[in-house]
């Protein structure tokens, strides 16, 4: 039986009839909550500013951040009906005929957040130049990426818990180094097998090949990979990204010296980590090794 079928059969995930879209059981959510507690144990001493955003962001943010240049295939936007009675009749007619009624909706100003950190940059930019110590923000949000898959570790709607660091290049890189050490130590203490790899984002098309190659050559992205559904294709459960000045240029975020700031983030895929724990320690968290339960504050 596949891991996905087993998770659904045991009731940990609830099938919703669309690949990559699941409900979560209480037992699954409890594990997710405890992964967040473990994240807090690591990160709370840094006293981050906490921001929570809804799963939607302004469509303008996808435009401003360059997302549509790099990942048009992953982006999702919210559409809604805003026509007349006559248009409504036409929509119902399409519906009756089994046609694509969504074409009769219009775009709204809302897009789905592709990563938890997207809300942070405009919020920080509104405050003017960064203080000398930079800023550190804790975010947690549902994200959407359009990549339907039967692999339960590749959900279309999933949550990311992140810390985002904004400051000088040195501050951003030091943050990434710190979280690399913390992340490795956490996965080791959770008794999960993992590899660390230089990675690239799934940039679109031919131009994407160049962007992906640049990202790898410059070691901008590292992933901590844990085997979940298939041992030969381990899943990125934690990613550490140095954005250089990409977002800070887009939002004109400056350091206290008036230079364009740099940013970095660490992102925990909380569902993926939960799946990794279920896969390696069994489907009942009560039966997990006590050491693992201790790390997760059970």
């Amino acid at each position: 039986m596949s891991l996905r079928d087993e998770l659904v059969q045991r009731g940990l995930l609830i099938s919703m009839g669309v690949d990559g879209l699941y409900g979560r059981s209480g037992a699954f959510e409890r594990v997710v909550e405890h992964i967040n507690l473990a994240f807090g144990t690591l990160g709370d001493p840094d006293r981050p500013e906490v921001m929570r955003f809804p799963p939607g962001i302004g469509k303008w943010q996808l435009e401003k951040s360059g997302y549509m240049k790099s990942f048009p295939q992953l982006a999702g936007t919210v559409h809604s009906f805003s026509g007349t009675d006559r248009d409504h009749g036409a929509l119902l007619e399409t519906l009756k005929e089994g046609g694509d009624w969504t074409a009769q909706q219009q775009g709204t100003e809302i897009a789905l957040a592709p990563a938890a950190c997207y809300g942070v940059y405009p919020a920080i930019a509104m405050r003017g130049p960064l203080p000398a110590k930079g800023r550190l923000v804790d975010v947690y949000a549902y994200c959407f990426r359009h990549e339907p898959s039967v692999d339960p570790a590749r959900m279309q709607m999933f949550r990311q818990r992140e810390h985002v660091r904004l400051g000088t290049a040195e501050q951003a890189l030091a943050f990434r180094t710190l979280w690399m050490a913390r992340s490795r130590a956490l996965l080791t203490s959770l008794a999960l097998p993992f590899d660390v790899a230089v990675a690239n984002d799934p940039f679109f098309g031919r131009t994407g090949k160049l962007l992906a190659s640049s990202q790898r050559e410059e070691n901008l992205k590292f992933e901590l990979l844990v085997p979940i559904a298939a041992a030969e294709h381990p899943t990125a459960c934690i990613s550490l990204n140095y954005h250089r000045d990409l977002f800070c240029t887009a939002y004109s975020i400056q350091t206290t010296d008036g230079e364009i700031a740099h940013s970095a983030c660490v992102g925990f895929g909380v569902e993926r980590l939960a799946l990794a724990l279920f896969r390696h320690h069994g489907f009942s968290a009560e039966a997990w090794p006590q050491k693992v339960r201790d790390v997760l504050c059970f």
Binding site: R206, T207, K209, L210, S213, S214, E217, E218
Partner: peptide, 20 residues
């Protein structure tokens, strides 16, 4: 890259789609 492809009427093969 796109401007060079247009100006010289060529297409860079994948192996050359690198930062270097």
């Amino acid at each position: 890259m796109l401007a060079l492809e247009e100006a010289f009427d060529i297409e860079f093969p994948d192996r050359l789609l690198r930062r270097g």
